[in-house]
C-alpha cells in the first residue's frame, strides 16, 4: 500500500488553543489522507475533542493553520466546516432532544418543498432508508430522540454524518454508549466509509479497537502531541506507554 503520497485531505498545522489558563491544545500537527482512518488517543482531558472541534468549526483556534486538499481553509463556524464536507459525530451527540430522528438528521439542512416549506414526509422517508441500512432494528421515527436509548441516539448521530456526502468524518467516541453488537456495526460503517475513500478521524479510549480500525494513531497528552505511528509499526503496549508516559518508546530507542 502506497504510504500516503500526494496531498493530504486534511492537514492540521501547529494548532493551539487555550481556555483561560488551560492550554487545551498545544502546537499539534496531524494530517489525514483519503481512505485513511487516523485515531486520536490520550487521557481524559488530553485535548482530543478540542482539537477536532477546531476542525469542525465549533471552536476557533488561537494559532495554527488548517489545510484541506492542499488549500488553506478558513473554518470559523460549523457551517463553514460543512461547506468543506466535514461531518462530525460529537462526543455529546449534539442532538435536539425534543425533535424526532428525521428532524435531527436534517437539522440545518432541511429538505424543502417547492414552496420553501420543510418537507417532513420526504425527510422521514429518507431517514427510514438510511436507518434501514445502519441500524435495521431502529423503529422509533415519530418520537422525540429523548425517548431513544443511548445506542439509538448514537445511530441517529452517525446517520447524520453518513447521509450527507461527507469527505471527512470526525467521530468522537462513537462507540462509547454502544453494546457489542452495535459497536460491531459502527466498525462496519467505518470500514465502508474508508473503502469509499473518505478520511476519518476517530477518537476512542479502546486501544484494541483502535489498532484494528485505524491506519495511524496519534497520541496526545496534556494538549501536546506525543507522536503519530502507523499501527503496523507499533504494539498495543507501545501505544499504552505513549498514553501513560507521554513518551514515544520507538523514538527513544532509536
Amino acid at each position: 500500500m502506497a504510504k500516503n503520497q500526494g496531498t493530504p485531505l486534511v492537514d492540521l498545522r501547529n494548532i493551539s488553543i487555550s481556555f483561560g489558563g488551560v492550554q487545551a491544545v498545544d502546537d499539534v500537527s496531524i494530517d489525514l489522507y483519503p481512505g485513511e482512518v487516523v485515531g486520536l488517543l490520550g487521557h481524559n482531558g488530553a485535548g482530543k475533542s478540542t482539537l477536532i472541534k477546531i476542525l469542525a468549526g465549533a471552536y476557533r483556534m488561537d494559532s495554527g493553520e488548517i489545510w484541506i486538499n492542499g488549500e488553506k481553509a478558513d473554518i470559523k463556524t460549523p457551517a463553514d466546516a460543512r461547506d468543506y464536507n466535514i461531518e462530525t459525530i460529537y462526543q455529546t451527540l449534539a442532538l435536539a432532544d425534543n425533535l424526532d430522528a428525521a428532524a435531527n438528521l436534517f437539522l440545518g439542512r432541511e429538505l424543502t418543498t417547492r414552496l420553501g416549506l420543510v418537507d417532513d414526509a420526504t425527510m422521514e422517508s429518507e431517514t427510514r432508508k438510511i436507518m434501514a441500512r445502519l441500524n435495521p432494528n431502529f423503529q422509533k421515527f415519530s418520537v422525540p430522540v429523548s425517548a431513544l436509548s443511548g445506542g439509538q441516539r448514537q445511530s441517529v448521530a452517525i446517520a447524520r454524518a453518513v447521509y450527507f456526502d461527507a469527505k471527512i468524518v470526525i467521530m468522537d467516541e462513537p462507540t462509547a454508549a454502544l453494546g457489542v453488537h452495535e459497536t460491531e456495526m459502527v466498525a462496519e460503517i467505518i470500514k465502508e466509509l474508508k473503502a469509499q475513500g473518505l478520511g476519518i478521524f476517530l477518537i476512542s479510549h479502546d486501544t484494541r479497537e483502535m489498532m484494528a480500525l485505524c491506519d495511524r494513531v496519534s497520541v496526545m497528552k496534556n494538549g501536546a502531541l506525543v507522536g503519530t505511528e502507523r499501527v503496523e509499526d507499533v504494539t498495543e503496549d507501545d501505544i499504552l506507554s505513549m498514553i501513560i508516559l507521554g513518551k514515544n518508546p520507538k523514538r527513544e530507542a532509536a
Partner: peptide, 9 residues
Amino acid sequence: NPEAAALAG
C-alpha cells in the same frame, strides 16, 4: 438543545 443547534450550523 442550543449547543446542538449551533453545532448544526
